[in-house]
Nucleic acid binder design. Structure first.
Lengths: 345, 345
DNA sequence: CATAGTTCCGTAAACGTTTACGGACGCCGA
DNA sequence: TCGGCGTCCGTAAACGTTTACGGAACTATG
């Protein structure tokens, strides 16, 4: 005899009463409830999740999907840990558990999702690293699984999303650099089809155009989102016949490798080239200090959670409006890396 | 009508046959199997995980437990991503899925485990960041849940473990530094009760003793496992009346902050002080290059997975011996940071 | 033709919960 | 005394699978 039956037998009451007692139902004598709880602790009883899920059709689990594998590895970093922190702060209030769904780089992300989540594994999903066209969005929306994306995508199923304000970053960076006299400005973008790359580059292009400048193709560097990618960008940049006088780095970690490549060539950020990047715990310790854009990842996590819950009937009352479809602003942290001013001839 | 019943109704066959067809049982006509699979795809049927788990008592999910929260955040890093990669390479062969169980720093880790895993959420667990005394080990062993730990612990339930060879690192580091004439050698250790701290410091002490040297208390620096911790260590070290001539850093990311603190004071690794650390994708880009210990995290992940599976009856035949209770060797990568030689007076 | 064996499929029980329903019992007011 | 009401509890169905069991149809063998 196992599970709730064992408990009921031990107490000589029915399993219905045991269940009600454990779940805090009102129609159970307080004395019996006390006995049940005591016995549960004594016998080390914990309700079986499968049985509960099967009956209730709910798992109390929210999945945060992320991809493993070496090339994306640099992105994992502390970024997600901080976001998780915020997400959990909200989930904790509703007995929801957050787990990270780790999709191997060898498997198709949509297949993975279909396999693990459409089976009723999670009550809701948070999607990150949205691609330009993202089959995962279609899948979840077809299956009516509540979800929210961190990052926009062209695949529109009416889902709520949050995203970093890459447009704002692009605009502010370009304006700032142009104001300092830069005319030849480089940008980086991710190596893959993650949507933010398109958004960022396009806005850079527009911002430059508004100043009467063009974004030259040879100044758009593709880079894996890790240190090695940044190093590669640095090498390529240095090998150009006509170097740019400034660059905007879209990923957090690439600044490290980029700095190194410059350093090896005796090129110093802030003196020989202006560099603007993204904040990360590492960037903080770069020298010369990196001018970068930062935001509160924890707050972003909170917003993600609230937005997701606002789409779920059970929780909607707590989060009537949510925070959906919002660009998350980034704040400029002034450093020394973009101190270089170009004097017009 | 939902689920497998709907499929059966649609095909006008019994649910038993549908189930057998989907699960690749031999006792089903190939033609019917074809029809079932086609219909499943057409209707978008995916088996419900709860129903399956309830019946089979198995979930096909392995949990990798990790803690979120800011102070440990630096440790997350790319370390785990690489380990996951190896774990998944093995799990992929057995239709097992890896998920990261994210325990909020606000919840007791053992409570968390009991809540999420004892409920039958996962078939097995990988525990990381084992504390000196770790209640999670007791819990899992009481509940007979297969698990393996990455890191040793004094809490012994006969569980299999793998660990990095911190003893080897300690010994080699000390030997190397002493051979270069260093007498006053500092070490770092984690701020919390994670077991590796004790192991590492003790072995350093022994190694020093074997050379007739003592490990002075003021030269043992506690540090959070992130950049900020490293910076703090650097500041403290610099403020000592009598500075050490060498230091061994136990965590991967602290070198970054440590370098920065030194740099601010005009102290250069390899010239003014010898530094030995751990490899990380960042460390690779430090200047002067960091002498550090590295290992294949992917291989470690593979071993973790194989060891876990070897303890699970269903998979035992594939992994008869496992790789349990092994210290994972680290290889020394020579850099410039420990080039300083002390000439004896 | 009888028998045995093989191939395939349907039936129904079981997994561990939750919960709608109804009943037993005691209490109160009419 | 009776009906009504409130409190508490037991019964049993339901959730969606898997699988042991048995049987029908067919084939092979003598």
């Amino acid at each position: 005899m196992k599970g709730i039956r064992r408990l009921a037998q031990h107490l000589d009451i029915s399993i219905g009463t045991v269940s009600r007692a454990l779940n805090g139902r009102p129609d159970v004598n307080e004395e019996t409830r006390r006995r049940v709880l005591a016995a549960a602790k004594e016998l080390g009883y914990v309700p079986n999740q499968s049985g509960r899920s099967l009956r209730q059709g709910t798992t109390n689990i929210i999945g945060f999907m992320m991809q493993t594998g070496t090339e994306i590895t640099g992105q994992g970093d502390t970024f997600f840990m901080s976001v998780f922190d915020g997400v959990q702060a909200v989930f904790g209030r509703h007995k929801l558990d957050l787990v990270a769904l780790l999709c191997s780089s060898e498997e198709d992300p949509a297949d993975y999702l279909s396999r693990v989540v459409a089976r009723g594994f999670a009550d809701g999903v948070i999607l990150s690293a949205t691609q330009r066209h993202d089959a995962r969005v279609e899948l979840l929306s077809e299956r009516n699984i509540p979800f929210v994306t961190l990052g926009r995508t062209l695949t529109d199923a009416g889902q709520p999303w949050l995203d970093l304000d890459f447009e704002g970053m692009a605009q502010a960076s370009i304006d700032r650099l142009v104001a300092r006299g830069h005319r030849r400005i480089a940008v980086t973008r991710p190596h893959d089809d993650v949507n933010l790359g398109y958004v960022f580059v396009e806005r850079c292009r527009e911002a430059l155009a508004s100043h009467g400048l063009a974004l030259e193709e040879e100044l758009i560097f593709r880079s894996t989102p890790n240190e090695a990618g940044g190093y590669q960008v640095g090498r390529e940049l240095l090998s150009l016949d006509e170097r740019p006088t400034a660059i905007v780095l879209i990923n957090e970690t690439i600044a490290i490798g980029f700095y190194r490549a410059l350093s090896e060539a005796g090129v110093k950020p802030g003196r020989d080239i202006a560099v603007i990047g993204r904040y990360s715990p590492h960037a903080q310790f770069l020298s010369p200090s990196l001018t970068c854009f930062r935001l509160s990842l924890r707050d972003l996590g909170v917003a993600l959670a609230e937005t997701l819950l606002s789409t779920m009937p059970v929780f909607r009352e707590h989060y009537p409006h949510g925070t959906a479809n919002k660009l998350w602003p980034m704040e400029l942290v002034e450093g020394a890396s973009d101190a270089l001013h170009i004097h017009q001839p």
